[in-house]
Design a protein around this nucleic acid. Structure first.
Lengths: 341, 341
DNA sequence: CTGAAAGCGCTAACAG
DNA sequence: CTGTTAGCGCTTTCAG
C-alpha cells in the first residue's frame, strides 16, 4: 500500500537511492555529485556511476531549501513586442547559462500593479537575484526590493533612483544627443512621432531630452504625434502620415520614438515619393539591423541591449561571489549618422 | 548565538511566524493563505492581516517540495535572435501568467548537446510542465522527456514524432504551399536564399517542401544561396545580391528562408533599381509586420507564433487540471499574397 | 575523507 | 473548521 503510493506519486530517483546503490551515505553522495573534491576518487566514481544508472536528476527545490544557493534569477521585462527586450533577454540568458543559472521570466506590460505582483511571485521562488527593467517607479515595488535582501539590477535607464545596481544609459541624454546632432546638420523645425509614452517612460525620457536639446538653441517641436498601442513599423508609417497631414508646414526633421516607428516613417516617404533626407529628415532610436539595411541607412542611436543584459547578469553573479560591482554601470549609446538625416 | 545566526542567514518571515501572530496553527495559516474557503471568515482575516504586517512572501520551494504543484514551466527555445521566438514566448507567458505560472527559460542555440543539458537543468527544478521548440531530434532528450513523466508540448512543427503533445503546423506543407502559389502566378524559374539550414531544421523542412511543390510540375530550383549565421535583414540583402551575381540567368522568383531575409532582398532590389515583382518576384515566410508595412507588401506565409505559445501553455495547464487536450494541435499558417510576387 | 543528526518551510494525511 | 504528526529531498552543522 505504502509502496504503491510512493510509486504513483513520485517515481523519480532520490539522492538516497543513489547513495544506497553506491554503498555510501546520502551526504557523501551529495558531496560527490556537487563536486569540489571533498570525496575520494574511487567513491566519486562509484557515486557518479550510480547516478547515471538511475538517471538521477537532482531536486534543486530540496537543495535550495536545505541551504544551497538558488541558481534561479528573476527577470521582469515590460514587453516582448519588439526585438529590444528579446535582445536583453538573450544577453541575460547567455551569461546566466554560463554560470549554471536560469532566468524565471515575468512580463509587466508596463503596468505597475502587475509588476508588483510579479515581484512577489518571483520572490516566492527565492531566486539568487533579480533583474528588472522597471515599468515605472512604484514605492511598493521599491519596498519589496529593499526588504528582499538580494542582488537587484535595474536595467535600461540609469537616470532614476537605483535600489541596488543599475546597468544602462541615460535615455534623456540620448534624446539630447539626437537633438544636437540634427541641429548640427542644419535642421531647424522638428516633429516627433511616438508610441504610447504614458506607459513607456524611457521613450518619454528620450522625448524630454530631445526637447531640452532643441531648447539649447531656442528651437522647439512644431508637431507631436503620439500613437496608441505598442510601437511597430505600421504604426510609425501611419504616425508620420498623420503628422504630416495635420501640420500646416512640413518640418525639416522628424524624430521617432524608436527604429520600428522610424522605419515605418521611411516606408511612408517611399510610398508617397517624398525624398529623404532632402524633403524630410528622419531619425530613430535603437540601431536595429533593419534600419541599417535600408537602401539609405537610418540615422539613429544604437543601444547595446544584449550587452546590457549580459552585464546585468554578470553583476548578479559577481555579487553572489562576494564581489561588489559598481553601483551604476554604463553601457552607453552611440549615435549612428546614417543617411536619413 | 543561535539567534544571531538565524538573523544573518534568513530574516524572511515564515509561515510559522504568520501563524503565531494570528494565533493559529501553521496549517491553518497555510490553508487561509492558499484560499479555498477552508477557514472561517474571521480566522482568514486575522491570518491575512498578520501576513501583511510581516510582509510575508511564501516560500514556494518549500511548498512545492512538501507536495504542492510546482507552478513553474520549463521553456526551451532555440534562439532569441529574431522576433519569432520572442512572439512565442510572449504568448506562452501571457497564458502562464493567467494561471499563476512562470516560465523558466533556456536557449539551446540549435545545439543538441546544449538542449540536453538544459533539459536536465530545468527538470531539476521539478517544473509542472515543459514547452520546447526542439533544436533537433536527439534520442537522449527524448529519453529524458519520456522518463520525466510530466506534460510536454513540442512547438512549431508537427511533422516530427511527438513525445507527448505538439502545437504548430507543418513547415514542409508551408514550403509546398508557397511553391504552388508562385507557380500559379506564372513564375517558372526559381531561386532560394536562406540562412544556415544545417541548424534550423524547420527552415530546411520549408525548403524541402518548396522543392517538392516545384517538382509537382517538373520545375526546379536553379540557384540556391545559403548564408552563414543567423537570419537577418542585412544577410538577406547580401544573399540575394550574391545569388544574382552567381547565376547566369535571373530567376523569375526567389523564396527566402524567412521574412527578415526577404526584406533584405527587397532592399537589395530597391538599391540596385530592380523592379519587384516585374523584374524579380520575392517571397518570405513568417508574416512579420515589417514585411506588410513595405511600400509593396511582402508576399509571405504568416505563422501565428504568439498563438502557438499561448496554446502550448494552455495545453500544459489543461493537463494539470486532469484534462487531455488533443495530442496534436494545429495552429496553421496562412498564405499572404502581398505584392512582391 | 566519511557519517549521524537536525532541520530548511511548507503541506498531505489523518484526526478531532 | 482546526490541529497534530510526519514527512518532501536535500544540505548544514558537528563528529569522527
Amino acid at each position: 500500500m505504502a509502496t504503491s503510493q510512493k510509486d504513483t506519486r513520485n517515481r523519480r530517483p532520490t539522492l538516497s537511492q543513489v547513495a544506497k546503490r553506491a554503498g555510501v551515505s546520502e551526504i557523501t553522495a551529495s558531496r560527490a555529485l556537487r563536486g569540489g573534491g571533498l570525496v575520494a576518487q574511487e567513491t566519486l566514481a562509484r557515486v557518479e556511476q550510480a547516478a547515471r544508472m538511475l538517471n538521477y536528476v537532482p531536486n534543486r527545490l530540496a537543495g535550495t531549501l536545505a541551504g544551497g544557493a538558488s541558481r534561479q534569477v528573476g527577470v521582469i521585462l515590460p514587453s516582448l513586442s519588439n526585438i529590444v527586450f528579446a535582445d536583453v533577454l538573450k544577453g541575460l540568458e547567455s551569461r546566466l547559462e554560463g554560470g549554471g543559472y536560469h532566468p524565471i521570466l515575468g512580463i509587466s506590460h508596463y503596468d505597475a500593479e502587475r509588476e508588483e505582483r510579479l515581484l512577489r511571485d518571483l520572490l516566492s521562488w527565492r531566486p539568487a537575484g533579480l533583474v528588472l527593467a522597471p515599468a515605472c517607479n512604484s514605492a511598493a515595488s521599491r519596498a519589496l526590493l529593499q526588504a528582499a535582501d538580494l542582488p537587484v539590477v535595474e536595467i535600461m535607464d540609469i537616470d532614476t533612483d537605483t535600489a541596488d545596481m543599475a546597468v544602462g544609459f541615460s535615455h534623456r541624454s540620448a534624446g539630447r544627443a539626437m537633438a544636437h546632432f540634427l541641429l548640427g546638420r542644419g535642421y531647424r523645425t522638428f516633429g516627433y512621432v511616438g508610441h504610447d509614452i504614458t506607459t513607456d517612460f524611457r521613450a518619454k525620457a528620450r522625448l524630454e531630452g530631445f526637447r531640452e536639446g532643441l531648447a539649447d538653441i531656442g528651437a522647439t517641436l512644431t508637431g507631436i504625434r503620439i500613437m496608441e498601442g505598442p510601437s511597430s513599423v505600421p504604426l510609425g508609417k501611419q504616425g508620420l502620415e498623420t503628422l504630416l497631414r495635420e501640420l500646416p508646414e512640413r518640418p525639416d526633421a522628424v524624430f521617432f520614438s524608436n527604429d520600428d516607428m522610424a522605419v515605418g516613417g521611411v516606408f511612408h516617404c517611399q510610398t508617397v515619393g517624398l525624398a529623404v533626407p532632402d524633403g524630410i529628415a528622419l531619425a530613430g532610436f535603437n540601431g536595429l539591423s533593419i534600419g541599417q539595411a535600408l537602401p539609405t541607412p537610418l540615422t539613429t542611436i544604437a543601444s547595446n541591449r544584449e550587452r546590457i543584459g549580459f552585464v546585468a547578469a554578470d553583476n548578479i553573479l559577481q555579487r553572489l561571489l562576494g564581489k561588489t560591482p559598481e553601483r551604476i554601470q554604463r553601457v552607453d549609446f552611440k549615435l549612428i549618422p546614417g543617411g536619413t538625416a
